[in-house]
């Protein structure tokens, strides 16, 4: 990579770079500790050195053989994937309609959807719980998923992005003979892939790391998601830090994969939407 300047000649740049590097180290330290701890034996956990004295994979072996981590991992993965697909589909559909169709009450609907963004999860879990209880959704996958199947934020994001799709393109597709749904699916949606990738990342990660609601709605270990499962390593009398860290280290992998995969799409999407007309 060519730099546009020579850092040796500009002391201010040196300062900035140092600060950025320090910031980076601060950010990455917890991750290093997580990995380090996951490689430590039981006796070494409270020894805070970064390089374990006797590195071991026995925590990983235990995690997969003895705990129900694999089950939790699959639960989380399935729930996050289904939620993401659902959010991408329904939020973009709703956003598209709110953006491209003029109908009575459109503004009211949009404001109503936006206002749901102002209510925090902590306030919603009680009504969700009551609802789940009455409908028999407690301790089910659907019970964990349903609050996140459609999100106000996604509808808002997609509506804003659909503004960049020219109306003439939609008219052209109507003349070409596409049904309204196919116009959405084949013409409008491919043009907002950057927004879709961003929304996919947010949604997947949000679901992957969700803790409060899954904790409340599940009560058997086989229905736990990863965060709830990891929390169960922290018992009443002792906390198995090495196990929590080992589970967390494994749980980070999908996050990284999602990010790396979709980042490519984001870049491609940006190139696409740079197209004029």
């Amino acid at each position: 990579m060519r730099l546009g300047f020579d850092p040796r000649r500009d002391p201010r740049k040196i300062l900035i770079w140092t600060l950025v590097a320090l910031g980076g180290i601060v950010m990455i330290m917890p991750f290093l500790f997580m990995i380090s701890t996951s490689l430590k034996g039981r006796g070494e956990v409270y020894d805070l050195r970064l390089i374990p004295l006797a590195p071991t994979l026995e925590n990983y072996a235990y995690l997969f053989r003895e705990s129900r981590f694999l089950r939790w991992f699959l639960n989380s993965f399935a729930i996050a994937s289904i939620s993401t697909v659902s959010v991408l589909f329904f939020d973009s559909l709703a956003g598209y309609v709110l953006c491209k169709y003029k109908f009575k009450g459109r503004q009211v609907v949009f404001v109503a959807i936006l206002s749901t963004l102002m209510i925090p999860t902590e306030m919603l879990v009680i009504p969700w719980y009551v609802m789940s209880k009455n409908l028999g959704w407690l301790n089910t996958y659907w019970g964990i998923m349903f609050p996140g199947m459609i999100t106000g934020f996604g509808v808002f994001l997609m509506k804003q992005f659909f503004e960049t799709v020219p109306d003439a393109l939609i008219d052209a597709a109507r003349i070409d003979g596409l049904s309204e749904f196919r116009i959405f699916w084949e013409v409008a949606l491919p043009l907002v892939t950057p927004a879709l990738s961003a929304l996919a990342i947010f949604t997947f990660l949000g679901s992957w790391t969700a803790f409060l609601w899954p904790l409340i709605v599940t009560n058997s270990a086989s229905n736990y998601t990863v965060p709830v499962g990891l929390a169960s390593f922290s018992g009443e009398f002792s906390t198995e830090w090495n196990m929590i860290m080992t589970g967390a280290a494994v749980a980070t992998i999908p996050t990284l994969v999602v990010f790396i995969l979709l980042q490519k799409y984001i870049i491609r999407g940006v190139i696409l939407s740079g197209v004029k007309g």
Partner: peptide, 28 residues
């Protein structure tokens, strides 16, 4: 529109950015 036996050309081209020229022309 598709049943009216018409075709329309718009000011800002309105060709599909994510399709090749061939696909654009053949789409209808």
């Amino acid at each position: 529109p598709k049943d009216r036996n018409i075709a329309m050309v718009f000011q800002n081209y309105a060709i599909y950015p994510h399709m090749t020229v061939h696909k654009n022309i053949a789409f209808g």
